[in-house]
Simulated scan of single mutants.
Amino acid sequence: MLRRTLRLVAAFVMFLSAVAVGTVATAGTAHADGCYTWSRTLSQGASGADVTQLQIRLVGYPGHGAELAVDGQFGPGTTAALKRFQSAYGLASDGVAGSGTYTKLYALQDDDCTPIHFSYGELNDCNTTWSGGAVSAATAKSNALRTMWKLEALRHALGDQPITVTSGFRSVACNNAVGGASNSRHLYGDAADLGAGPHSLCTLAKQARDHGFRGILGPGYPGHDDHTHVDQRSAPFWSAPTCGI
């Protein structure tokens, strides 16, 4: 009798656990992630730090020649970028960030919030502190993170084949050592030089126009025949004459 009672108690506990698990799975936003976990569904009109975190991951989906503001305000631009992201990954393109969107984002990010195919080390072969550039170390590192999410979008658009970063953040000393321009965007942490690989330099330069890069320099532009340069400057400037840009 005692054994039967214990089995019934155990079965009831398992039932309660299953119900609890089912509830969490249905909620979706309760998923715990090593980098960042969203706790609510987001749509146009929302605001806050969780919107900012979403925007950082959507900066590569602003549309041709556009850029997405990372301001914590979920406006039309964020809605459009989210729809492009959702479409790119085969999700329902409704412009609402819910469990399906978050699940994909969790799969795309490492515990340090970098996208899975890029790392801080790739974007900084100058030093480990991100110091000595034209902005604070924290700003340079933050800029590099946004650049990586743009590169992740670029990579996905080109069939998820590898993209090689040959140069990223530079301190003034590192920039001088390689003969960089005194006003190089590399000093700000928001620039990356891309080498040829599965894709030609022209393919990289042309596709980059759709992923939030305001600066694109490639073959045909002085000093850029062996790489494609992308950055986030204040005024748009694209030049890769060999590529028809």
Rank of each mutant, 00 (worst) to 15 (best):
M14F: 15
G75P: 04
G132V: 14
R84M: 02
V24L: 15
L91S: 05
V135K: 14
G90T: 07
G28Q: 07
P236M: 04
H227L: 10
G77M: 02
G132T: 08
L158F: 01
T5F: 08
C126V: 08
C35K: 03
S119C: 03
C113V: 06
G223N: 15
V135I: 13
A18I: 03
Q232W: 02
Q53G: 05
A205D: 01
H229K: 01
Q161S: 08
G95M: 00
G223D: 14
G244W: 13
R170W: 12
V230Y: 00
G98E: 12
P115C: 15
A144W: 08
Y102I: 08
T114N: 00
E67N: 06
G65K: 11
S93H: 03
L54E: 06
P222A: 14
N127A: 13
P162E: 09
T139I: 10
G95N: 09
R146S: 10
A138K: 12
P236Q: 07
H186G: 04
G195Y: 03
D50V: 14
A46P: 07
Y36A: 07
L54D: 06
D210L: 00
T37V: 08
H227C: 10
L16T: 11
H64P: 01
T5P: 00
V59K: 04
T147E: 01
P62K: 14
D190V: 14
G132P: 05
G168H: 11
G179Y: 07
R146W: 05
F12R: 11
L204T: 06
A97V: 09
T79Q: 13
S184V: 01
A97E: 14
Q109C: 12
P115F: 11
A157C: 03
G100P: 03
Y89C: 00
R3N: 10
A192M: 11
G132R: 14
G28T: 05
T101K: 04
D225F: 04
A137Y: 08
G159E: 10
R3E: 10
S182A: 15
Y221G: 00
G223P: 12
F213V: 00
G77Q: 08
T101P: 00
R146Q: 11
G212T: 01
N127R: 13
G218V: 06
R4I: 07
A49M: 11
L68V: 08
K104T: 15
T78E: 07
H156L: 05
H199V: 08
C126Y: 08
F213E: 00
Y188V: 03
M148F: 00
G65P: 04
Q44N: 10
E152D: 07
A80T: 07
D94R: 04
R185C: 01
G223H: 10
L187Y: 01
A140Y: 07
G48H: 05
H227T: 06
N143R: 11
S184D: 09
G159A: 04
H117W: 15
V21F: 12
A18P: 05
C243L: 04
A92H: 11
R4E: 02
G212I: 00
R214S: 15
V19W: 15
C243G: 04
F118L: 09
D94P: 06
C243P: 12
L6C: 02
V59T: 12
F12L: 15
G75T: 06
H156M: 02
T52N: 08
L201C: 10
G72F: 06
T26Q: 15
A138M: 10
F118W: 10
Y120K: 13
V21Q: 12
V9Q: 09
Q55S: 07
